[in-house]
Amino acid sequence: MEVICVANQKGGVAKSATTAILASVLTRKGNRVLAIDMDPQGSLSKQVGANINGHEVYDVLKGNISARDAIQAMESFHIIPTSIILAGLEAELMTDMGKYFKLRDAIERAKLTELYDYIIIDTPPSLGVPTVNAIVAANKVLVPTDADCDSINGIIQLNTTIQNVKKYCHVDPQIMGIVFTKFDPRQNNSKDMMSLAMRVPDALNTRVFGTYIRAAVAVREAKSRAKDLVASNPTSNVVLDYSSLAEEMFKEG
Rank of each mutant, 00 (worst) to 15 (best):
K223M: 10
E92P: 02
G49N: 13
Y168P: 10
R104H: 01
V217C: 01
S76I: 12
E90T: 11
D228G: 02
G49R: 13
A50L: 09
G154I: 08
A138I: 12
G49L: 12
N233T: 07
V48Q: 09
T161S: 01
K99I: 10
G42H: 02
T206P: 01
N159P: 09
M94G: 08
F183P: 09
N139W: 07
R28Y: 04
I80W: 08
L86G: 06
K166F: 04
L142T: 01
D148F: 00
K223T: 04
F183M: 05
A147D: 12
G12F: 05
A226L: 05
K166W: 02
R199E: 15
A70V: 03
K227Q: 15
P130Y: 01
Y242T: 01
K10H: 13
S83K: 12
I71A: 06
A106N: 04
G11T: 11
Q174T: 12
G63N: 07
F209D: 04
I65A: 09
D59L: 06
T27S: 09
I21S: 05
M97W: 09
E56A: 04
K111P: 03
Q47W: 11
T123M: 03
I213E: 09
V239L: 04
T19Q: 00
A218D: 00
R186H: 13
V239E: 07
Y212R: 03
V132D: 08
Q9S: 06
K62F: 10
T211V: 06
S244Q: 12
I121H: 11
N237E: 13
E248I: 01
E75A: 14
V48N: 12
E56F: 01
K251Q: 10
K111Y: 08
T131C: 03
P40I: 05
A17S: 15
L61V: 07
A106R: 02
G154T: 08
N237T: 14
I36T: 06
A87H: 00
S195T: 12
H78G: 01
L112T: 00
L26T: 01
D39N: 11
S16N: 04
R199Q: 15
V13T: 02
N8T: 11
Y242D: 00
I71Y: 06
F77K: 06
P234I: 11
N64Q: 11
F101T: 14
Q187E: 10
I162A: 10
Q163L: 06
P81Q: 00
Q157G: 08
C169V: 07
